[in-house]
């Protein structure tokens, strides 16, 4: 089989039944999603996704551009709420709490599910204030010394402390792109989230900065649950334990990373990882 046209793909999805592999986990699931549909106005972007994210695992989501992987990621901490025309259906639970429940406070949710974005987006403030931003707005500390400690720990966990410890009061925008992205990771972990969502965190970085972020992801997985969207299959293979393949808004296949990259079951997954399209 050669490259698929969209019509052929539509035919493939005509008789769509379910995802190949094991999208759900018996126990050990931190976040669960069931039958998630996402709409932008009239247009449906995500079709009935069931997917679990296990405790302390790194789940990679891959797929061609426009397959909905970033959209899906942004439903997990309700970042899509900031887009007027976006609607989400289905159930998403975090540790048993329905995050789209009326009683769920989105401020609280985003403190539990942090997010790192595609382009490093440090605030135009000092390095210290960037990391202290989250703890301050959530009132996590009462004394300056505690805040200092949180900032230092977060910067150390993001393995950027040694580079910035002497210039914490300088503007964060003066850092290099890779340092900015690690600072953004430090900013996220400063509020001690349970889950960290990463939306192509290395796509704006050079290879060396990328390698450092990947190392960092491996270290962070000891304490955090991480879901990462990536364009790079190599990156998914290097950092993740489980991989989910999305195509045209559907979750096509999910499984252990080794298995997905060596013996994919679905034809579309195979075509993608062997580079026939994407």
């Amino acid at each position: 089989m050669t490259t698929n046209t969209n019509d052929e793909l539509a035919q493939i999805f005509e008789g769509w039944s379910s995802t190949v592999g094991k999208p759900t986990l018996k126990d050990n699931a931190r976040m669960t999603t069931r039958g998630v549909d996402v709409f932008y106005g009239e247009k449906q972007a995500i079709f009935g996704v069931d997917l679990d994210i296990g405790k302390n695992e790194v789940l990679a989501m891959i797929g061609p551009s426009g397959c909905g992987k970033s959209t899906f990621l942004r439903t997990l901490n309700r970042m899509n709420d900031t887009i007027d025309i976006c609607r989400v259906k289905g159930d998403i639970h975090l540790d048993g709490d329905n995050i789209y429940d009326k009683k769920m406070d989105v401020v609280n949710l985003r403190a539990r599910v942090g997010m790192v974005f595609q382009k490093p987006n440090p605030f135009p403030k000092s390095i210290y204030d960037n990391v202290a931003y989250g703890p301050r707005i959530h009132g996590l500390v009462t004394r300056k010394a505690e805040l200092d400690e949180i900032v230092e720990t977060a910067l150390q966990k993001a393995s950027i402390w040694n580079e910035v410890k002497d210039r914490l009061d300088q503007p964060a925008t003066g850092l290099s792109g890779g340092q900015q992205q690690r600072l953004c990771i430090a900013r996220t972990i400063a509020v001690s989230p349970e889950v960290i969502l990463m939306d192509e965190p290395c796509s704006a970085l050079d290879p060396i900065a990328t390698a450092r972020i990947e190392e960092l992801i491996a270290e962070l997985s000891e304490n955090f649950t991480i879901a990462i969207v990536t364009h790079s299959m190599q990156q998914a293979a290097r950092v993740s334990s489980r991989t989910a393949y999305f195509h045209l808004g559907r979750l096509v296949e999910v499984g252990a990373t080794d298995k997905i990259f060596t013996a994919p079951e679905h034809r579309l997954t195979e075509d993608y990882i062997t580079g026939r399209f994407g």
């Binding site: 901490n77 989105v106 942090g114 135009p124 931003y133 900013r187």
Partner: peptide
């Protein structure tokens, strides 16, 4: 003010008024 700054602030759980006061106004 770039959208990415708003996203960064909302992503940390800031409310609209916190984002306006602490991120958007200074920028």
């Amino acid at each position: 003010v770039p959208r990415s700054l708003r996203d960064g602030s909302y992503g940390l759980g800031a409310t609209k008024s916190e984002t306006v006061k602490q991120v958007i106004f200074p920028a």
